[in-house]
Design a protein around this nucleic acid. Structure first.
Lengths: 327, 327
DNA sequence: TTGTAAGCGTTATCAT
DNA sequence: ATGATAACGCTTACAA
């Protein structure tokens, strides 16, 4: 790869002039500019970002810290982030932490020493003191890290309410719920909202993490101990898919005997049989917003920290009966 | 962040000495080493990778170019890659190309100017001349780029054969197939293998890309034009999921009336109802191997280019009948 | 065994 | 309007 020096030589100017035309600042005559541009084209020159980075202390890199890209909720988020980052000339460094503090630490120093310009984090460890002392622009996504850090999340409480409301409106009277991991604040809200409107229609409840395997176990337990019930709200779509699978195994008809609502709105929901009714978060939008916010922070366009709460919507597919439709 | 100069000062030695202890080369007395280590700890010093990168021309960064992380085949691959990269002190930069040459180009120059140490590419554009003239260590994954470039792929031809064989062995006599995008070499092989053993048992066939939506359309077409058939092989698991969904819509019982086999072995296959029998690629293993190979290339441990063809296996779940089991 | 200093490719200051 | 040059933080000759 050519260097700025070679370009300067080829164009018969100094490196300063080349730098000026590249960055479009300072005076440069039309001839000089033309010569430089010619040289750049001739040599197929592109500035060395490492060198530039050393001087400017900015890298054009964004660190993306998530538990596990393999969890189907995250790819869409990652995609959104990567899209807007790319549109603004940034690249993203992918980091899977498996929620392990240790890995998180490792990445944090790695990212710091490579001078990433900012961080997007979807992690549990709100107790991790390292974030606060990090002094890097960052925004939390789908999680609340700590006051003082920007966050974009969806309205889980309303989502939970909406789920209960939908189930009840379409005739369910015996409700059950599979909640998510207890330590996830944003997930807990879904449960709270659901319970608040379910009231004493709730006849059973259990917990599961977000792996399909454990969700299947939870579903089985629920069927074993609380059947019959006619409305189920799962804390996310993966759990709902497990419920669906268990239902067919038991010859429980969905939605005739049992209505099921998931949460997230990931693509998996379209692929189950029958396709899953769900409370959809605006996932892509959340990723987009978080990244735009981060870029604002990085480029110092805004300074007051804020928390963005996005509305969720009901995506009616075929695991619920249409409102007003009889069983 | 502290700099090497500050460490040197604190330890009362020169920067050269600090550098020596950090990189463990050259002579350095025990006392000097101790002093430096103390200073490093005191100042919480970590070397600036950008500066180091400028000198060494290596960045510790690997570029990962894929069509779309949102396609459920890729997250597992990405995960494997990130895992082994991380284990060796490398980070990975995620790039989604949507198979668009233009985006690919953009990333290529971005990655190049930031001096990534190597590239892992899962892309179609084998015709893209830019790869060859890139002069960067790289390995193609799940795709064949061009001779001269290392590749790791799975044995699609044998996979196709295995699918047909499985279907036939468990009693299917009227076979159909939904093939993948024509331009994907590695996917085409699956079809070739399948056709070779299906022979004249094949009564119908169509194409689809890997989006669920289009797969659903393809499945509908196939049912409309060729039903009844009793064995179906889909070019990947997403297509198979679409088939499953369409089957329940039509009250076709799986596997009693129709046996279905997918390809890939992604987690989605566990979540369908019933869970999907599939030809499983060793996805994680492929990602792992590709990355290890890339690191070998980067660190010049091996030089002859090779193509690694990994075996596939049958994952029997519940969309096929067990061999020898009657219908 | 240790230190001085050149150099990696930029940007920006300061003369001119 | 343009060119020298110092500086960014590191590694590695080379000298001592």
């Amino acid at each position: 790869m050519a260097t700025i020096k070679q370009v300067a030589k080829q164009a018969n100017v100094s490196v300063a002039t080349v730098s000026r035309v590249m960055n479009n600042n300072g005076y440069v005559s039309a001839e000089a500019r033309a010569a430089v541009e010619q040289a750049i084209a001739d040599l197929d020159y592109a500035p060395n970002r490492v060198a530039r980075s050393l001087f400017t202390k900015t890298s054009g890199l964004i660190g993306l810290i998530m538990p596990d890209i393999t969890n189907p909720f995250f790819p869409q988020l990652a995609r959104a982030i990567e899209d807007v980052a790319n549109q603004h000339g940034y690249q993203v460094v992918l980091c899977n932490t498996d929620e392990q503090l240790e890995k998180e630490q490792g990445y944090l120093v790695a990212l710091q020493t490579m001078h990433v310009d900012g961080l997007i984090i979807t992690t549990n460890h709100s107790d991790n003191p390292n974030y606060e002392k990090l002094d890097l622009p960052m925004v939390a996504l789908d999680r609340i890290v700590k006051s003082g850090i920007d966050a974009v999340i969806s309205d889980g409480y309303e989502g939970g309410r909406l789920a209960a409301d939908t189930l009840i409106t379409s005739g369910a009277t015996r409700l059950v719920h599979i909640a998510g991991p207890e330590q996830l604040q944003t997930v807990k809200r879904r449960t709270e909202g659901f319970l608040d409107v379910a009231g004493d229609r709730l006849i059973g409840m259990t917990h599961s993490n977000f792996t399909f395997k454990e969700a299947l176990t939870a579903a089985q337990t629920l069927f074993d101990t609380h059947w019959p019930f006619d409305g189920l709200f799962a804390a996310n779509d993966v759990i709902a898919a497990a419920v669906l699978q268990e239902a067919v195994r038991r010859d429980v008809r969905v939605p005739e005997d049992l209505q099921v609502i998931g949460y997230d709105g990931i693509e998996l929901g379209e692929m189950t049989s029958p396709p899953l009714t769900t409370i959809a978060q605006p996932i892509y939008e959340m990723g987009r917003l978080a990244t735009e916010r981060l870029l604002d922070l990085i480029e110092k366009r805004d300074v007051e920290t804020k928390e963005m709460l996005l509305p969720v919507t009901l995506t009616e597919r075929q695991t619920t009966r249409r409102k007003g439709q009889d069983r």
